[in-house]
């Protein structure tokens, strides 16, 4: 399989007052297309920061992030936006649905910039089992339902990579399990790479490849290189 991501010496610093927080402290990593990867670690270990660098939501302070051979740090904003739109699908712990939009409209948010598609949005809601709730507002849906909408939104443009940051963090364990099932199943169906950040070891155990993180570095479990 082709190497999709190639990270070398990636570091990310944040200025917190006078102190510098090293959220990510020199990480090397290769990820193949179609992989299901779990990033494991306690909060503050750097999972979210790594995920944001992989999803072109942020630029590294040091090192290079190559996505399909292109250095994300060197791409202009407009091209990063295009990558986020067509190549990446994000799922957040807080779901991040637009509160004033219905389920189907929330899926359309992702589809509108690529030309719209209400049918496609409805089809995606069917795939996550929410066709009957298309016209409900997020406030009127359960957490699990909201996260399904978020998954439908992330997958609606057939992204090459799905990035999920603590997707089950706000859900009970049964629902969380269902969500992970759904995510992995759909990703396999669409041929997408899935990278999940979680502090839940049980959930991480479902992933074929697990990377443990601590203090901005990989630690212990598994090798940083491709399996």
């Amino acid at each position: 399989m082709a190497i999709q991501y190639e990270l070398s010496g990636v570091a990310k610093f944040f200025e917190r007052g006078s102190a510098t927080v090293r959220a990510l402290d020199g990480v090397d990593l290769e990820i193949e297309a179609g992989e299901f990867l779990a990033l494991e670690g306690p909060s503050g270990s750097g999972k979210t920061t790594l995920l944001q660098l992989l999803g072109a939501l942020d630029r590294p302070s040091e090192g290079t992030v190559l996505f399909e051979g292109r250095d994300l740090a060197k791409l202009p904003d407009i091209q990063l936006a295009a990558l986020r739109l067509r190549s990446f699908g994000f799922v957040f712990q807080q779901f991040n649905l637009i509160p004033t939009l219905t389920a189907i409209e929330n899926v359309e948010v992702k589809l509108a910039p690529v030309g719209g598609g209400r049918e496609k949005a409805l089809q995606m809601l069917e795939e996550v089992g929410l066709a009957g709730r298309a016209d409900h507002l997020p406030a009127h849906m359960s957490g699990g339902e909201q996260q399904r909408v978020a998954i439908a939104r992330a997958l609606s443009v057939e992204p090459r990579v799905v990035l999920a940051d603590e997707p089950t963090g706000n859900l009970d364990s049964a629902t969380g399990g269902e969500i992970i099932e759904l995510l992995s199943g759909l990703a396999a169906e669409h041929g997408s790479t899935v990278i999940v950040a979680t502090h839940d070891a049980g959930l991480a155990a479902r992933a074929p490849r697990r990377l443990a993180m601590r203090d901005g570095r990989f630690a212990g479990l598994g090798a940083p290189a491709a399996a």
Partner: peptide, 16 residues
């Protein structure tokens, strides 16, 4: 701000 950040994360450009 968070909503707008989400839109950008989903691929909306600054202009949009």
């Amino acid at each position: 701000t968070r909503e707008l950040g989400t839109l950008k994360a989903l691929g909306w450009t600054q202009r949009m």
